[in-house]
Nucleic acid binder design. Structure first.
Lengths: 134, 134
DNA sequence: TCCTGTATTGACAATCATTATCAATAAGGC
DNA sequence: GCCTTATTGATAATGATTGTCAATACAGGA
């Protein structure tokens, strides 16, 4: 059930590659625009599909920006969380073992099964701080 | 700047009340539907505005469901987080002092200012677990 | 209590991200 | 190379949310 009838296309590679190039999280629309600006003729719907695939496979993280857009990022290893600059989008992966454990504990203590969690920290990075003083 | 020119209307009360009655998180559309079903003639846009107001004032919490809808819930006290059943929407407020502190520490350690965070735990509540066995 | 200025409302249009549709294309096993 | 069918992409459709703006009704003063 992993990839029984999956086919490899240059479109999927393009999306995977573009996502790898991007710094921080990017939306599908934005990624599509980047690809087109680089000469690609890839379609918007395809970018959406490819990103959803990558996220499903586990090769991409996804989160929702505060205005409702779904953002993606190339996923290096396994499960982790992010510290995101709300101004420039700079992203740092953070260790959250303590919190992982805590989340599961809380869920189980209340009788909830299959716990998942959303843990993201937003802030203004140092670069944007100095920039905004002006 | 708190409420210099704010007026009280039955619409705002209706939304506040309906939100109080609701169990767990509800979307604006859903709340609007409930109000109409109860005979109210309130407009959809007004529900959106009232909910946004409540959230801004601090009388309501908001979070985004996994399909992009913004959900609201009457807010009892100050800052807290939630454990939400992804099936029935049952919500429990959880204590997260440890995590609060951790989030701020992490942000500051990386030079990020004005940290805010999104911490929500999703799971299947015990009631829904037994229900889904059938 | 009545008047009046204006915050607020509500119907509807507009926006924006995302998903569905479906004919045309191309990946990959033979 | 051929054939099956997964995949693409242009476009329409969806669904939540916000903008518009004339009509309405709250609230303070006469």
């Amino acid at each position: 059930m992993t990839d029984s009838k999956r086919r490899n296309t240059w479109q999927k590679d393009a999306v995977r590659h573009a996502l790898g190039e991007a710094t921080g999280f990017v939306g599908a629309q934005q990624l599509h625009l980047v690809l087109r600006n680089h000469g690609s003729t890839i379609g918007l719907a395809t970018v959406y599909r490819a990103l959803a695939d990558l996220a499903a496979i586990g090769d991409a993280d996804s989160l929702q920006s505060q205005d409702g857009e779904v953002l993606y990022r190339a996923c290096t290893n396994s499960h982790h969380h992010h510290l995101i600059c709300r101004n420039c989008g700079l992203t740092k992966e953070i260790e959250a073992e303590r919190v992982e454990a805590w989340a599961d504990e809380v869920a189980e203590a209340q009788g909830f099964s299959n716990p998942t969690h959303t843990i993201d920290i937003f802030g203004t990075c140092s670069a944007c701080q100095s920039r905004n003083i002006a």
